[in-house]
Amino acid sequence: MTIPSIHADTVLGSFKIKVSNLARSIEFYREVVGFQVLSQDQSSARLTVDGIHAFAILEEIPSALITPRRTSSGLYHFAILVPTREHLGLSLRRLAESGIPVGQGDHSVSEALYISDPDNNGIEIYRDRPRSEWKHDAQGNILMGTDPVDIEGLLALAGNKPWTGLSPQTILGHIHLHVASLAESKAFYCDVLGFDLVVDGASMMGAYFVSAGGYHHHIGMNIWAGVGAPQAPANATGLAYFTIVLPNGSELERIVARLDDAGFPYSLQEGQYCVKDPSGIEVRLISVGA
């Protein structure tokens, strides 16, 4: 039976990460990455790029354990998609000024910079090339590689222009997860939710990339923390949840019905359907305007 694809206009929404020191994290995300603080209380902060909507939520965990890299299922990185190459150049210059380690990769479909926050939460900042330049193999997989980024070109675009933080047009482009089982994760994200497999890298690199509407990926999943990677303790830093946004209520209801059919339990919290994937990662489903 052919599984209907998730709606092509599906995107990712806000997400929450757990941190060990809220004040330190706010300073990092504001001064290094370029978010604004939308609201804040004693234990959490909502970050924004447009001054209206929450992009990410930081939650301080009492006596938090900082999760070592590649030791558990959960966040590998979340990916901040900036609107232009000049914006990526401005981010690169700011990261260089901050003195933190920066990784990089030209993936053919995009140019990306990689950093970690003070709690080892991985972050990608990237810009996409036009879809007309993306290439596919005979099986329809989007072709992606890892070549050096043109650092000098990015910095030349930035020039001496002022850095004012992330553009209001910045979005969460994708999220990349450490999972316990590629097969079970693919079954959940593709066969139940309906994302399309766009990069089958299971045999070559231990990863799948899936998306809606032909994008190069909205969700990446890998077994780089090991097959059967355990969940991190409840008081550990890392991803609390991420949100998938359906374009309307009927599409949301259709996907929730698929959860019912597949036997995945969920709860309804303030209009958000909360479900855990096979690795124990919480996913929240909402519709536009919810």
Results as ranks from 00 to 15, higher is better:
residue 133 E to D: 13
residue 24 R to P: 00
residue 101 P to S: 12
residue 100 I to W: 07
residue 249 G to S: 13
residue 61 I to A: 06
residue 69 R to N: 12
residue 69 R to H: 13
residue 73 S to W: 02
residue 230 P to M: 03
residue 7 H to R: 06
residue 225 A to R: 10
residue 97 E to Y: 09
residue 56 A to W: 08
residue 229 A to N: 07
residue 247 P to N: 06
residue 97 E to V: 04
residue 279 S to Q: 02
residue 229 A to Y: 02
residue 196 D to S: 14
residue 123 I to K: 08
residue 197 L to Q: 11
residue 217 H to F: 05
residue 108 S to D: 14
residue 42 Q to L: 11
residue 229 A to H: 08
residue 78 F to D: 00
residue 231 Q to A: 12
residue 217 H to S: 05
residue 133 E to C: 02
residue 278 P to H: 04
residue 227 V to N: 11
residue 261 D to C: 04
residue 34 G to K: 02
residue 7 H to L: 01
residue 77 H to P: 10
residue 89 G to V: 01
residue 202 A to Q: 13
residue 226 G to V: 08
residue 203 S to C: 06
residue 47 L to F: 02
residue 158 A to G: 04
residue 201 G to C: 03
residue 216 H to C: 02
residue 276 K to L: 06
residue 179 V to L: 11
residue 80 I to N: 07
residue 5 S to V: 00
residue 59 E to A: 14
residue 164 T to W: 00
residue 257 A to G: 15
residue 271 G to D: 09
residue 288 V to I: 10
residue 207 A to I: 07
residue 15 F to Q: 11
residue 220 G to I: 04
residue 41 D to Y: 09
residue 46 R to F: 13
residue 111 E to P: 01
residue 33 V to Y: 11
residue 252 L to G: 08
residue 153 G to L: 06
residue 175 I to Y: 08
residue 201 G to P: 02
residue 11 V to I: 15
residue 284 R to D: 09
residue 115 I to W: 02
residue 117 D to E: 08
residue 174 H to K: 02
residue 96 A to D: 12
residue 154 L to D: 06
residue 14 S to V: 02
